[in-house]
C-alpha cells in the first residue's frame, strides 16, 4: 500500500520534477562550476581559480552597496504596493460600474510590457521635458533631476516598481474582499461597530491568507527586478540603483566576467536562503 502510494506520488511529481532538474537544478549546479573559473563567456578555455571569485567578493564595495540597494528596493516595493493595493481594493469594494474603470486603470501597467513602460518613465522623469518636474514646477515645488540624482534615482525606480506592481495587489485583494461573508459585517453593523474598527478587527485578519500571497509574489518579483532599472538608470548614478540582477548581468555580459558573476549569484542565493530559514525558525518558535 505504502509502496503504491509512493509510486503514484512520484508519477504525479514527475512532470514538475523533471523540468526542475533539467532547467533549474542542472544549470544551477553548472553555474557553481563556472563560479570557480575566470571564464569570460567566450574563451574556449575555462581557467580554474578555486574560490578566488568568492574571496574577491568580500572586499567588493560594489557588491555590498548592491546588497543594500536590493534590500531597500524589495522591501519598499513589496510593502507599499501591498498596503496601497489593500486600501484601494477596500475603497473599490461594492462600487458597481465605476470600480470597473478604476480596476482597469490600476491593472493597465501590469499588462504593459516592462520594457515599454520603462522607456516612457525615462522621459516622464526628464528634468527638461518630463511631465513630473513640469508639474512640480507649476506647483512651485522644486523638481529633482530624478534619474541623475544619487538621492532620487532609487525612489524613482521604486515608484515605477510600485506602479507596475500595484494592479496585481488590487485585483487579488478585490477578489478576496468580494468573497468575504457579508453576514458578519451586518451583525457588526447592528452592534454599531465603526467602519475603521470593522477593517481593523474583521477585514485585516480575514484577509491574512491573501496578504501572505500578495507579499510572497511581490517579494519574488521584486528581488529579481531587472528590466526597468536596466533601461532607466543601468544601476547608476554611482551605483545608487545597482540591484543584484543588474550587477550580475553587467559583470557577466558587459565586463566578460562570467565566473565572478556566477559567484555573485551563488552568494546572493545563499544569503536569501539563510534569511528565509532564519525566518522560519523564528516563526516556528513563536507558534
Amino acid at each position: 500500500m505504502r509502496n503504491r502510494q509512493a509510486r503514484t506520488a512520484y508519477l504525479l511529481i514527475a512532470p514538475a520534477l523533471l523540468l526542475f532538474i533539467g532547467f533549474t537544478a542542472y544549470p544551477f549546479i553548472w553555474s557553481a562550476q563556472i563560479s570557480l573559473t575566470s571564464w569570460d563567456g567566450l574563451n574556449a578555455v575555462k581557467k580554474f581559480v578555486g574560490f578566488q571569485n568568492y574571496i574577491n567578493l568580500f572586499g567588493d564595495a560594489e557588491f555590498r552597496k548592491s546588497l543594500s540597494v536590493t534590500t531597500i528596493y524589495t522591501v519598499s516595493v513589496t510593502l507599499i504596493s501591498t498596503i496601497l493595493g489593500f486600501l484601494i481594493a477596500l475603497m473599490l469594494q461594492r462600487r458597481g460600474k465605476s470600480s470597473v474603470i478604476y480596476r482597469t486603470i490600476f491593472f493597465s501597467p501590469v499588462v504593459t510590457a516592462t520594457v515599454a513602460a520603462a522607456v516612457v518613465w525615462q522621459l516622464l522623469f526628464d528634468p527638461y521635458v518630463g511631465v513630473i518636474d513640469l508639474g512640480l514646477k507649476a506647483l512651485h515645488l522644486p523638481g529633482p533631476n530624478w534619474l541623475s540624482d544619487t538621492h532620487w534615482a532609487l525612489p524613482a525606480v521604486i515608484i515605477v516598481g510600485i506602479w507596475k506592481r500595484l494592479g496585481f495587489a488590487v485585483i487579488v485583494y478585490a477578489a478576496g474582499l468580494s468573497s468575504l461573508p457579508t453576514s458578519c459585517y451586518e451583525a457588526a453593523d447592528l452592534d454599531g461597530v465603526s467602519g475603521w474598527q470593522k477593517v481593523r478587527y474583521m477585514t485585516i485578519p480575514l484577509m491574512r491568507p491573501v496578504t501572505t500571497l500578495v507579499l510572497i509574489t511581490g517579494f519574488i518579483d521584486a528581488i529579481q527586478v531587472f528590466d526597468h532599472i536596466f533601461i532607466l538608470t543601468s544601476g547608476g548614478p554611482m551605483g545608487s540603483t545597482n540591484v543584484m540582477s543588474l550587477l550580475l548581468f553587467n559583470q557577466g555580459f558587459k565586463l566578460f566576467r562570467l565566473g565572478y558573476a556566477s559567484a555573485i549569484g551563488w552568494t546572493l542565493f545563499m544569503i536569501i536562503l539563510a534569511l528565509t530559514m532564519l525566518q522560519w525558525q523564528i516563526r516556528r518558535r513563536h507558534e
Binding site: A16, A25, Y26, P27, S31, A261, W266, F269, T276
Partner: peptide, 21 residues
C-alpha cells in the same frame, strides 16, 4: 525543501548554462 529553495535562485545566473541545454 529543494523546490522551495529554487525560488530564490537569481535568474540571470542560469542564462548561459540553460541556453547550453
Amino acid at each position: 525543501f529543494t523546490l522551495l529553495a529554487s525560488m530564490m535562485v537569481p535568474l540571470p545566473l542560469l542564462v548561459i548554462p540553460s541556453f547550453q541545454i
